[in-house]
């Protein structure tokens, strides 16, 4: 059978086309993530059978349905505890948590705090499309101040939540922000993140043309894409302070944290071996 796309071997092609709206940024996120996984598999630093996906609920979390790997679509906000438990029981797994800003920063916000505190060995990919997509474009904690959404018809009065600052402050091993408008850089960050122990957090600035773009006056997916692209600022070594964003200031992308502290799995196994006098694997 002819191969239609180089990534088909990683896709449940019977589930394609995806449920995503035409022009949604999520296709780029998934493609980029799978390319990063592919590079790791090809170079032998990751085994295909050890890759697992977990997502909560939302358009982003739906991504767990399409890749041809083990995956779990759990309830809204709770993908991190699920993935962490898988990782502890099967330390050889590379668990990838994908979720929207609602899933990971709002309802699941508590879990991310504790996953980072533990430096849990997970790759957490948070797609920031600046609203709750699946439920219809309501204001999210990440919505830039002043923007219109379906629940802030006169503009969002609240401050936007900067997850980069939070994850950096709590001690994640790797923290980066990419954008679907710059997929090569994004792939670079995801590739690097996949090789880290401890918690790797990658925020992806993405587009929801259907419910965000149209609400703020962009009639087509391309218009929104170009608008976001204009607002992206690429920095080689940005400071944590520079991760603060606003619609006017734009979004700095780059690698904010890259360190190598022991991850939760190492810590817990070391501890178990200490109290049991060795032999725990």
């Amino acid at each position: 059978m002819a191969v239609a796309h180089p990534l088909d071997k990683y896709l449940r092609t019977d589930r394609i086309p995806t449920m995503w709206c035409p022009g949604c940024g999520l296709g780029i996120v998934m493609g980029t993530l799978l390319r990063a996984v592919d590079r790791r598999i090809k170079e032998g630093s990751l085994k295909r059978e050890n890759v697992g996906f977990a997502g909560g609920i939302g358009c982003t979390a739906r991504m767990t349905l399409y890749p041809l790997f083990d995956s779990a679509h759990v309830i809204h906000g709770r993908a991190i505890p699920f993935a962490l438990a898988v990782k502890i029981v099967k330390p050889e797994m590379k668990m990838i948590v994908v979720g929207g800003d609602g899933d990971l920063a709002a309802i699941g916000g508590n879990h991310i705090l504790h996953a980072i505190r533990r430096n849990a060995d997970l790759l957490v990919v948070m797609v920031n499309n600046m609203i709750y997509g699946m439920t219809g474009g309501q204001v999210a904690p990440t919505t830039p101040r002043g923007l219109y959404t379906t629940t802030t018809p006169y503009g969002n009065p609240e401050r936007e939540m900067n997850m980069i600052k939070l994850t950096a402050a709590l001690g994640a091993n790797y923290v980066a922000r990419g954008s679907i408008t710059h997929p090569q850089l994004l792939e670079q960050y995801l590739y690097k993140a996949l090789g880290k122990r401890g918690l790797a957090f990658v925020e992806v600035i993405s587009t929801c043309p259907e419910l965000f773009g149209r609400h703020i006056g962009f009639r087509s997916p391309v218009d929104l894409y170009m608008e976001i692209r204009k607002r992206i600022v690429i920095k080689a070594k940005p400071s944590i302070e520079e991760s603060d964003y606003s619609w006017e200031k734009g979004f700095v992308i780059g690698e904010f944290v890259d360190r190598d502290e022991p991850g939760f799995t190492d810590t817990i196994y070391e501890y178990l071996n200490k109290i049991r006098g060795g032999g725990v694997q």
């Binding site: 709002a106 309802i107 709750y132 699946m134 439920t135 219809g136 309501q138 629940t151």
Partner: peptide, 8 residues
């Protein structure tokens, strides 16, 4: 907090 079918 939004949830289908209540959101509207």
């Amino acid at each position: 907090y939004p949830i289908t079918p209540q959101t509207a």
